[in-house]
Amino acid sequence: RDLEAFAERFKQRRIKLGVTQADVGSALANLKIPGVGSLSQSTICRFESLTLSHNNMIALKPILQAWLEEAE
């Protein structure tokens, strides 16, 4: 599925960039996405391991996609 593929790709890119889950969570606040502050390390972990609810995964995907584009 698309979400699973993105979560795996996100994790691989994050590791390759040398960024921790906690770093991603705090960096999201710097993107200044309306309504989005920082996220906890555990939320990033649960996204990568696909243990969040489907609706949460869908909500987080564009936010994490934006971070990934900014980081690369």
Rank of each mutant, 00 (worst) to 15 (best):
L50G: 14
L50V: 11
L68M: 04
G18E: 06
S26E: 14
Q65N: 06
G18I: 01
L60G: 02
S38P: 12
E8L: 11
Q12P: 00
G35C: 04
F10V: 03
Q12A: 14
I58V: 12
S49T: 12
I44K: 12
Q21V: 13
Q12G: 05
I58E: 07
K11R: 11
R1E: 15
T43D: 10
A59K: 12
V24W: 01
N55F: 05
K16D: 05
T51P: 00
L17R: 02
D2N: 15
D2S: 10
E8F: 06
Q21T: 14
K61V: 14
F47T: 00
L68I: 14
G37F: 05
E70R: 11
L39Y: 04
A29D: 14
K61H: 10
S42R: 11
I15S: 07
N55R: 12
L31I: 14
A5P: 07
Q12C: 01
P62Y: 01
F47A: 07
D23T: 11
N56G: 13
A29H: 08
V36C: 05
E70P: 01
V19G: 00
Q65Y: 15
E4C: 07
A59Q: 14
M57Y: 00
S26N: 15
G25S: 15
R1S: 08
I33D: 08
S40R: 06
L17M: 13
T20S: 12
L60I: 15
L50Q: 15
F47N: 01
D2K: 00
I33L: 11
V24M: 09
A7D: 02
Q21R: 11
N55K: 13
D23P: 02
R14L: 01
S40N: 11
K32H: 09
V36R: 03
K61E: 06
G37E: 08
N55P: 12
G37V: 07
I15K: 14
S38Q: 12
I15Q: 12
K11H: 01
P34M: 09
E4F: 07
I33R: 06
G35H: 04
A29R: 13
C45N: 15
Q41F: 06
T20E: 06
M57T: 02
K11V: 07
I63H: 15
A7H: 02
T43A: 07
L68Y: 05
I33E: 08
N55A: 15
N55L: 10
N56M: 06
I15W: 04
E8S: 12
S38Y: 14
V36N: 05
K16S: 13
I33K: 05
N30P: 10
T43K: 03
F47Q: 03
Q12V: 08
D2Q: 11
K61S: 05
L52P: 01
L68S: 03
I33V: 14
E70K: 15
E72D: 05
R9C: 14
V36G: 08
L17F: 02
A66S: 13
N30H: 11
R14I: 03
T43I: 15
I44D: 02
Q65W: 04
G18A: 03
I33A: 07
A66V: 09
N30K: 14
A71G: 07
P62L: 00
K32P: 06
G35Y: 02
S38R: 13
R9S: 14
L68A: 04
P62S: 04
K16L: 12
Q65R: 06
S53W: 03
N55M: 07
K16P: 00
A22T: 06
A59S: 11
R9P: 01
G35F: 11
Q12S: 09
E8R: 14
L52M: 06
E4W: 08
K61Y: 08
R1G: 14
D2W: 09
G25H: 11
E70L: 04
L52V: 02
A7T: 03
G25E: 15
E4P: 06
G35V: 07
L31M: 14
I44Q: 00
L31V: 11
D23Y: 07
T20K: 09
A29S: 14
I44T: 00
R13E: 12
I58K: 14
A66W: 10
A27I: 06
A59C: 05
T43C: 08
V36I: 15
F10Q: 01
A71K: 10
M57V: 03
A71L: 05
K16A: 13
E8T: 08
I15L: 11
T51F: 05
A71N: 08
L68Q: 11
R14A: 01
V19N: 11
A5V: 13
S38D: 07
D23M: 09
A5I: 13
L31T: 09
A66G: 11
A7R: 02
L52E: 02
K61D: 00
T43H: 07
R9Q: 15
R9N: 13
V19C: 14
T51M: 15
I44M: 01
L31Y: 14
A27C: 08
S40E: 09
K16M: 15
I63G: 05
N56E: 15
L39P: 07
K32N: 15
E72I: 02
T43M: 12
A7P: 02
V36W: 09
C45S: 14
S53G: 11
L17E: 03
R13L: 08
G18C: 02
E8N: 14
Q21G: 08
L28T: 04
N55I: 08
I58P: 01
T43N: 06
R1P: 08
F10M: 02
A7C: 06
G35D: 06
L17Y: 01
K11P: 00
Q21K: 06
Q65F: 06
Q12E: 13
A5L: 14
A7M: 02
S53Q: 11
Q21H: 15
E48S: 03
E70A: 12
H54R: 15
Q21A: 12
Q65K: 11
Q41W: 12
T20N: 03
S40A: 08
N56F: 09
V19F: 11
L28I: 15
I63C: 08
V24D: 02
L50T: 10
R13D: 04
A66K: 13
S53M: 06
E70T: 08
Q41S: 12
E69S: 11
K11G: 02
A59V: 08
C45G: 14
F10Y: 05
T51R: 11
D2Y: 09
V19P: 00
R13C: 04
I63E: 13
Q41K: 14
L17G: 01
H54I: 12
G18W: 01
N55T: 13
E70I: 09
S40M: 02
A59M: 13
K11Q: 06
E8D: 09
L52W: 00
R14S: 01
R46C: 12
Q65M: 08
T20P: 04
Q21C: 13
K32I: 09
E8Y: 14
L64P: 00
H54V: 10
V36S: 09
Q41V: 09
E69F: 07
M57W: 05
M57P: 00
V24C: 11
A71R: 14
A29E: 08
K11N: 00
K11Y: 01
E70Q: 13
L68V: 05
L17S: 03
E4D: 07
S26W: 14
I15M: 15
K61Q: 12
A5R: 13
N55W: 05
L60D: 03
P62I: 03
G25I: 10
A5N: 15
